[in-house]
């Protein structure tokens, strides 16, 4: 049996103090759906766990033009937030497909990115959204693009003593549509074989003004497929164009073979899902224009 004490700070300052005080012997605990399982599989536990879900300022969605999500917000709340749903459908979808109801009620968005597995379902949407991650320690605060936050499988940019304190999503233009699609062998409670997030903004004349294509589970970290994005920008949507972009994404993806899927199959899925995601994001962008 693993033994540890759980500390329950009431505010961020207290939390940061505790982190510093017990440095090397403490870990933040959010929903625990990754952390506690690690312990069960034999990873050594620190003496203290710092429960950050009881810190009110880390546990809410703030909307003021941009959207700021507290890292301890659980994935049910993220997937059901009206603002997130209407502006960042892909993030609501990414959060909404994690695990099961029970898991989403516990699991947090901060935990999902801090855990930093290649298949994390909120990562491609955050990447496609150009989100940034705010971190704080006793020493101060810094912010970085989410793309820089992921360093490798289960490796992130946090320094000891630092907490993720906010995830920021920029304000969006009109005529923007987004989607997150993941391929799993089983409908629910399964990890992504491939995850694709696409966010697409149209000009008034319906050319693609801006587009982001992000992939999960096909490389050590979630990736943006810039080549595909470049190809799309400035053009009106067409099936052929989406095919071509999808082909670029397929070439770009560097998946591994494991028990779940071979690398070759993952690449095929990347092509199919990128193509479909671009088409659907485009549809949504058009609907967004007509105010649906």
């Amino acid at each position: 049996m693993t033994k540890y004490s759980i500390l329950t700070p009431t505010g961020l300052d207290e939390a940061l103090e505790l982190l510093e005080k017990h440095s090397g012997n403490i870990k933040p605990l959010a929903g625990g759906t990754d952390l506690l399982i690690d312990f069960r599989y034999g990873k050594p536990a620190p003496e203290f766990l710092l429960d950050i879900t009881c810190i009110p300022e880390l546990n809410r969605v703030k909307v003021n033009g941009d959207i700021r999500i507290g890292p301890a917000t659980n994935l049910t709340d993220v997937s059901q937030s009206n603002e997130i749903k209407s502006w960042y459908a892909m993030l609501a979808e990414g959060a909404g497909c994690v695990g099961s109801y029970q898991i989403r009620n516990l699991a947090t968005i901060g935990g999902n990115i801090c855990n930093a597995v290649p298949s994390a379902d909120t990562a491609p949407p955050l990447l496609a959204a150009d989100a940034s991650v705010k971190m704080r320690s006793k020493a101060g605060e810094r912010t970085m693009p989410v793309a820089a936050f992921f360093l490798g499988p289960r490796k992130n940019a946090l320094q000891p003593g630092e907490l993720v304190t906010e995830i920021e999503l920029p304000t969006l233009k009109e005529r923007t549509g987004s989607i997150y699609k993941r391929y799993t062998h089983r409908k629910a409670l399964d990890l992504a074989v491939v995850g694709v997030a696409v966010q697409l903004t149209l000009t008034p004349s319906l050319e693609i003004e801006n587009v982001a294509v992000a992939l999960g589970a096909v490389a050590p970290v979630p990736l943006r497929v810039e080549a595909a994005e470049k190809l799309l920008v400035g053009n009106p949507y067409s099936e052929e164009l989406a095919e071509e972009a999808a082909e670029l994404a397929k070439k770009f993806a560097k998946p591994i073979s494991d028990v779940r899927s071979s690398a070759e199959y993952r690449q095929k899925i990347v092509r199919v899902f990128v193509k479909r995601s671009i088409a659907e994001a485009h549809q949504r962008a058009i609907s967004a224009r007509s105010g649906e």
Partner: peptide, 27 residues
Amino acid sequence: MENHTWDQQGRVEATDFKSYRIPSIGD
């Protein structure tokens, strides 16, 4: 979905429900 397999050394490959998939209610 279900496939109980052994690697070339005779070791069982999937040893939990994360890798050995059985249908969920959605399937």
